[in-house]
Design a binder for these strands. Structure first.
Ligand code: NAD
Ligand code: NAD
Lengths: 208, 208
DNA sequence: GTGCATTTGTGAAAGATTTCACAATGACCA
DNA sequence: TGGTCATTGTGAAATCTTTCACAAATGCAC
């Protein structure tokens, strides 16, 4: 359906548009213009239309976009037409927050396993999901592959865990550890780096 | 010291370089070349040199950069020469993870207050920091201004909390709620949007 | 000292992304 | 039906970011 060379920034905005559209749907809005979507999404109407134009033509001139249809189209583009299996490595504070967050399941992401190296953590359960020992990781992922792995361990062991996952065929990783992971070209990695976010804020505070 | 028009992407990389340099320092390395820094930071040596060149000349030709000196220079550029006061709004799972994370204090960010609207949460304490009722927010921020506010409430109340903070003079916000916040031009906002990160991963999985 | 090996700093080129601006289209109304 | 209005879709222009490539330093060996 889609050709290559879609900018990362475009994909991020599409996800944002989808979040906005869900809000509009909840409000009972039937249609929305690129202008309104842009205002809500923090961009410009030209940007909205350009982003969508990479994938097709979804609006009606003079009218705007059907909220329902555009949501559906965006879900298709983003690959949200099915559910995804997520494994979490590290059952610490962030790991437990991820497991207990209902928003992921709502949006199509099922957390199907969580692993930790600390035997005191193993056996704990949140929302019915038991923490398993990380030594079971390889077998568990072979039996029931995960689409996405979230790395929530301390930084020192993150690369090692990623190497294991990659060897097991994992193609998408969300990393919270403050290290830059090295992976093959065909594996997608996103980093969530909170200290970095704080530092971009301090830079902004000092350069206004 | 610095002129305007530094790209956001450059600032983010500077923060990344700083993290790498701290690793090199811990390893006892004295100097580092742009090539090595680039390899560790996931970019190119030309990019490293260009990023630094916006702020001055920090290396020695033929030798590279002094790890110690470049760290120090980057800390200066990012405004890390002093400590920052952070207030957290929302004492849920993510809020408590932030408060208990020792990495922030280590890097110059002191979490000085945490607020919640739920009276059952008020009075709980992590690492000696007591949760206060959000009705005390205005008085607390007037008495002891915060440099940065982290929003960790449900999405529905996030904009309202931000409006209160902005009215109190807060100029930097880190938002975890899945809503696009509206703020005046002179307020810096960073969004941490985990569902969006998952969706960029599903897009990548489906467009290989 | 001279020459060699390295690596920086930086203009200029290439490439990517955003903004502009407007013709084309569809809805609605009289 | 034809006129008016709003709004899309999209090339072209403007702007922004990254990469290239090389002269200018610097240390080191001999
Ligand atoms: N909590 C925060 O606010 C915060 C902020 C910024 C960055 N981070 C980063 O996120 C990551 C997780 O943070 P956290 O606060 O949840 O830490 P945490 O210490 O609460 O949890 C880490 C968990 O990983 C487990 N672990 C260690 N080695 C393991 C291994 N080899 N395999 C599986 N599990 C292993 C530990 O037993 C622990 O339960 C860390 O890298 C941290 O630097 C956290
Ligand atoms: N936990 C996750 O993994 C995760 C993932 C993605 C996004 N988020 C987002 O991060 C935010 C926080 O998530 P969480 O898991 O910590 O939620 P949580 O429900 O554990 O905590 C939210 C806290 O905010 C408090 N609160 C509600 N209204 C408030 C107000 N007006 N002022 C102050 N506090 C108020 C609640 O009492 C609660 O303690 C949410 O917006 C959520 O959508 C969380």
């Amino acid at each position: 359906m889609t050709m290559r060379k879609i900018a990362e920034s475009t994909v991020r905005r599409l996800s944002l548009y989808l979040r906005c559209l869900e809000g509009f749907e909840a409000q009972g809005l039937e249609t929305v213009s690129s202008d309104v979507l842009a205002a809500r999404g923090g961009t410009t109407s030209a940007q909205v239309r350009k982003d969508l134009s990479f994938f097709g033509s979804f609006g009606k001139r003079g009218l705007g976009y059907s909220v329902r249809e555009l949501s559906s189209a965006l879900r298709g583009i983003l690959g949200l037409g099915r559910r995804y299996r997520v494994a979490v490595i590290g059952a610490g504070k962030i790991g437990s927050a991820l497991v207990q967050y209902p928003g992921f399941r709502q949006r199509g992401f099922d957390i199907v396993a969580i692993f930790d190296a600390d035997t005191r953590k193993v056996g704990e359960a949140w929302d019915g999901l038991r923490v398993r020992h990380v030594r079971e990781l390889d077998q568990a992922l072979r039996d029931q592959p995960a689409d996405i792995v979230a790395i929530v361990t301390p930084g020192e062991v993150a690369q090692g865990m990623v190497d294991r996952c990659v060897a097991l065929g994992v193609k998408a990783i969300l990393n919270f550890a403050p290290v830059q992971l090295q992976v093959p070209d065909d594996v997608a990695v996103k980093h969530v780096n909170l200290a970095l976010e704080f530092e971009t804020l301090t830079f902004a505070l000092n350069n206004r």
